[in-house]
Design a protein around this nucleic acid. Structure first.
Lengths: 228, 228
DNA sequence: TGCAAATAGATATTTTTTTATCTTTTTATT
DNA sequence: AATAAAAAGATAAAAAAATATCTATTTGCA
């Protein structure tokens, strides 16, 4: 029996497969490594074994990128790298600024894969006088008070927030003010931003939550249930 | 991991609602803050507005914890905190060791919320001679060569891997050898571990992938589609 | 008192994601 | 050349997650 929805659904056109998108960098990392090792093709079986996930998931994910493989052989590694990057919008370099030069910010600056992913952090800001003017991983740390004047003329596409949760909203407001539309937020707060501004939030403790639940389940009775 | 059902299907006794579990720490963080501010009850409406997600999602998530709310009022904050912690298996302290005292490891050591979440990093190991013996965030860094002798008698429940991707598998092998069953892996590799050992992997670039896809979609045609 | 509004709780439906199964192609082997 | 096996590709089904809708309860207020 069909019951008519009052206002119907906004069809999204099936564009954002979140879990699949999140798996892509892992494929990419492995593929880049395989390419360095001189390999030229890869099967979904191989990737599934590496990732410890079901073969069919890998095939579906790869299909999302639109690539064609060769039966009985697999996919051309170079081509697959290109297709994944393209699917993720990583074909050209994404310009970024980092706000917060603490240990997390420093870790991100040192994250080698960003080079391969075309993610370029071009400037670093902090409010801590003991950090301003110093270099972190080869980049000068600017006073956050100068953020507007330094960036407003050609703001980067993305801002990465690595400040304390107490300071994050204030930082976000500044970023919005200079026209930044994409924020990657590592602070432990849900930022309030105007419509049109996209916030991608990283909740570090999310993984700990998964671990906790799994430990609890194991304690209760051991099951062979897979989880991610 | 290979779960082969020739025909029909296997019923999973337990359900793991991954997205819901990952949202829990965010609720928890907000609730802890509200409690500090002296609030005693909270409605799902309030939490939904804070999180920028649908009200009904919040209600479903809260229902998972098994708490009962009061109609027209909401949930008792203290009680909800307790229920969420319990749902996540965070009611007692989880003992942990950290391998890798670089900037990411340091960031985790400084992550205040872990205290509230009952996650206790009790020891820190590194292979870098320039770090061994030094203190990081008040903790002495031990030589990873001493990992076995120091931990084998009473291994912590969880090990956090914050070493380079090149070293991660080797570290994981050591951890498995001393009987650690839960690994929280921040290195950019899929670790190979024996059955029974649980690896929770944090893929930092996953969020960047989401951002990239969103930017691409916006470029192609501006839509008002929400995403996470 | 009675009504409106806010909210939890329950149920139903839709959409998304994962998993299963079937089909085709290609390669290696006998 | 025939055959078997490995892999992609296609289709179908099931499970998981999100969303919509309905119901009951409580509170504040006219």
């Amino acid at each position: 029996m069909v019951r008519k929805a009052k206002r119907g659904f906004m069809r999204r056109g099936k564009i954002l497969n979140t879990p699949a998108i999140r798996r892509m960098p892992t494929y990419l990392h492995k593929l880049l490594k395989m390419r360095l090792e001189g390999k030229v093709s890869v099967s979904s079986t191989e990737l599934a074994e590496y990732m410890n996930i079901e073969l069919i998931v890998v095939r579906k994910d790869i299909a999302l990128t639109g690539i064609s493989g060769q039966r009985r052989v697999g996919y051309d590694i170079n081509e697959l790298i290109r297709y994944i990057k393209n699917y993720l919008g990583w074909q050209d370099t994404i310009s970024a600024t980092l706000i917060g030069a603490g240990s997390l910010g420093s870790a991100l600056l040192g994250y080698d894969d960003f080079n391969h992913y075309g993610f370029g952090i071009e400037s670093v800001f902090d409010a801590d006088p003991s950090k301003i003017g110093k270099e972190i991983r080869g980049r000068e740390v600017f006073d956050i008070a100068t953020l507007e004047s330094r960036l407003k003329n050609s703001p980067p596409e993305v801002a990465v927030i690595c400040v304390s949760s107490a300071a994050a909203q204030q930082v976000a407001d500044k970023l919005v003010a200079i026209g930044i539309k994409y924020i990657w937020n590592f602070a432990n707060v849900a930022l309030q931003v105007p419509p049109g501004v996209v916030v991608q939030r990283e909740v570090i403790a999310g993984g700990l939550a998964m671990l906790g639940v799994r430990m609890k389940l194991d304690r209760e009775h051991d099951t062979g249930v897979a989880f991610d």
